[in-house]
Every structure is written in C-alpha cells, then in structure tokens.
C-alpha cells in the first residue's frame, strides 16, 4: 500500500487531475477574494442596511459546509433557477465548484480583511486627517499598506485551506485528482497506494506553498 509505482504509472492523468484542483483553487480564490473585499467594504460601511446585508452574507458563507454547498449549488440551484425562469439551466461541475468554494471562502476572506483594516490604530488615521490628507489618500497610503502586512499571513493560510478543500469536488463529478484516483483504483483493484500517492503529492505542493508563505512573510517583516 506504500508502493507508489502504480501512482507513477498513471502520473499523466493524475497530474491532469491535480491541475484541475489547482484551477478550481485559483478560480474560487479569485472569486472569494473579490466578493470578500466587497463584503468587507459593505461590513465597514456607515450605511446600516448595507452593513446588515454584508454581515448576513458573511455569516451564511461561513455557516454552510463546503461539501453541502457543492451539492446544493450543483443540483438545487440550477433546478430552482430553471423553475423560476422557465428554461433549463445547467451548471458545469467546474462552475458549481468555483461558486461553492468561492462563496464559503469569501466569508472568511471578508472577516480577515476587516480584522486587518481595523487593526490599524485609529490614531494613525487621525494623524493623517489632522495634516489635511483626504480619505482616499489615507486609505491608499496609511491604512492599506499596514493592513495588508497584518492580514497577509492569515490570508495565505486560508488559501492553503482552500486548496485542500478542492479535494471535495469529485462529489459533483469534477475530474480532479481524487476523481481520477477513484476510477483508476476501481480499474486496477488497488486503490490504497493511489491514496497514499495523492496524500504525498498534496503534502509536497502544500509544503512548497507554505515555504513560500514563510519566506514572503519574513521578507515583509524585515521591510
């Protein structure tokens, strides 16, 4: 069960599967960061209805398990839309996966953004205001440069979590690495070494990413 020769034999198709994981990660991370930033701005807005709507969205995003949302967006949402619009709507599995993982991630990203922005001491803003600086400049020059440094380590570990979560998408028939492992395992009647290989492959990818994170963080600290 630790013999990786079968894994190596199927390396081309397994690599394809891993690339699908990375693709879904990139798409859902981009979506999550974008929606997360919008939700964070809404959450910090002085306009109460927008603040409430953003807070509600963030809570929903963080409360539904990815596994459940994957199945819901792939099966229930197209059905509901079809009924509503009176025409047949179909989501490709990759679109469903991107939406589901992106929505959940956006809730966490939004809170990380908010924590980063709120961690910049109020006095730093007041000092800028007292010198006659205007809000857009204060955000761009004083708040964001500090907030990004503060939130970067957390954002990076959340993204690593998101990459791991992409291994759930085979449940809606996205041909990712776990999906391929399942098929090959059935064909060859030897699933166990394939799972070991997959675990090892993810370990290597994430080790590389974590090393990059530590390196970047250290670099930012020094600057």
């Amino acid at each position: 069960m630790f013999d990786l020769s079968l894994f190596w034999e199927y390396r081309a198709i397994l690599l394809q599967g891993m690339l699908i994981n990375l693709l879904i990660f990139a798409l859902s991370s981009t979506l999550g960061l974008t929606i997360g930033l919008i939700a964070c701005v809404g959450r910090l807005s002085s306009f109460a209805p927008l603040r409430a709507a953003s807070a509600g969205y963030i809570e929903i995003g963080r409360s539904i398990p990815e596994f459940v949302l994957l199945i819901w967006i792939n099966n229930v949402l197209p059905f509901a839309l079809s009924t509503m619009l009176g025409e047949r709507i179909h989501f490709s599995p990759i679109l469903s996966a991107t939406l589901a993982l992106g929505v959940v991630a956006s809730g966490y990203f939004a809170e990380t953004f908010r924590a980063g922005i709120q961690a910049v001491p109020r006095g730093h803003l007041e000092a800028a205001r007292a010198l006659g600086m205007r809000t857009p400049r204060i955000l761009g020059r004083i708040v964001l440069p500090q907030a990004i440094r503060l939130m970067l380590p957390e954002l990076m570990s959340q993204n690593i979590g998101l990459l791991k979560t992409t291994t759930l998408v085979s449940v809606i028939a996205v041909p990712d690495i776990m999906y391929q492992v399942g098929i090959i395992g059935q064909q060859e009647m030897k699933p166990l070494p394939l799972y070991t290989g997959t675990a090892f492959a993810f370990f290597l990818v994430i080790l590389a990413l974590t090393t990059l994170v530590h390196h970047t963080h250290g670099h930012l600290r020094r600057s």
Partner: peptide, 22 residues
C-alpha cells in the same frame, strides 16, 4: 475639501505620537 484645507493650517501633536510605522 474645506475641512482638509483648515487642517493643513493647524498642526496637531497627539499623546500617542501616531507616527506611521511602515
């Protein structure tokens, strides 16, 4: 804009210094 113009003519020093650390 008017408020910013006034503030530019009035310097302020705070108890907590409030220098920008970056």
């Amino acid at each position: 804009a008017q408020i910013a113009r006034v503030r530019a003519e009035v310097g302020m020093v705070f108890q907590q210094f409030n220098l920008w650390p970056h």
